[in-house]
């Protein structure tokens, strides 16, 4: 078989070397094929890297897909801007999909996203981080940056995850990055990460809005046992501090 193939290459090479006309036609055919394949290759790469359908072929989790499309991220980006997975993920996930298909939400592990992934769009200091998904540079400029928002700054600069007693810190360890991933950080150590407040509970996905439960899971001692404030969402008063570039006059002590 190999000898036949080598013989064919040898004979064909001799034929083309001694016949310039056919050689030119073959080179033209090769170039024609290369050029014809470019749009096909471009479409294939776009499908694999930018189209969520490529991920959805294996990640059959409608609740996560629909939650993402409903979220603020829906319509501006897809999976690969945030979920940067190692190459080994692809064959492993294909194997799991075919031979060990997840049946319930609990069978699907929640990914851990480091701060840098959120920061590449939401921190002005990480604007140079390369994006790998479909989010355009123009859209990226309009994404809310939270570096200078005083309450976001306080959380980003915190030396520990548990707030002080003055800030309502409880003796319970704060609700951790709820990913459940193996490399999930110790819930009581290290810096606060975005998913501590903007992550999802097990069995949920893409619930980015921080809720009262997210706040009181760490600031539990500030939660009043009775009265009007027991039903008021924390963000009704504190949202501005998480968004405003400067502390407002009314909030300045």
């Amino acid at each position: 078989m190999l000898a036949t193939l080598l013989s064919w290459f040898r004979d064909t090479g001799r034929f083309l070397a001694s016949h310039p006309g056919p050689l030119a036609l073959v080179v033209t055919g090769l170039l024609g094929g290369v050029i014809s394949g470019l749009p096909v290759g471009d479409a294939m790469f776009t499908y694999m890297w930018r189209n969520p359908s490529f991920c959805d072929d294996c990640h059959v989790h409608d609740f996560a897909n629909e939650a993402c499309f409903r979220s603020v991220h829906g319509g501006v980006t897809t999976c690969h801007d945030c979920h940067k997975v190692p190459v080994r993920h692809y064959p492993r996930n294909l194997w799991v999909t075919v031979f060990d298909t997840p049946e319930t939400r609990s069978d699907i592990p929640t990914p851990h996203l480091p701060l840098v992934v959120c920061g590449q769009c939401h921190l002005s200091t990480q604007e140079e981080e390369p994006l790998t998904g479909p989010l355009t540079d123009e859209d990226r400029k309009h994404v809310v940056k939270i570096d200078d928002a005083p309450l976001h700054r306080a959380h980003l600069d915190a030396k520990q995850r548990k707030p002080s007693g003055y800030h309502g810190g409880t003796d319970q360890p704060p609700r951790a990055n709820r990913s459940g991933a193996e490399d999930e950080p110790d819930p009581t150590a290290g810096a606060i990460t975005c998913l501590d407040c903007h992550g999802s509970d097990e069995g949920e996905a893409h619930q980015f809005t921080a809720t009262r439960n997210d706040c009181v899971s760490c600031h539990g001692e500030l939660e009043l046992p009775k009265g009007h404030l027991t039903t008021v969402d924390c963000t009704q008063c504190h949202l501005e501090g998480f968004l405003a570039p400067e502390r407002t006059a009314s909030a300045t002590p």
Binding site: G29, L30, G32, G33, I35, S36, G37, V40, G41
Partner: peptide, 20 residues
């Protein structure tokens, strides 16, 4: 035959192998 083969090879390289 050689022209067709060359065209197919060129197409496969940029259409399938390169994007992968």
């Amino acid at each position: 035959r050689l022209v067709i083969l060359a065209f197919v090879l060129g197409f496969l390289v940029t259409g399938l192998v390169a994007p992968q």
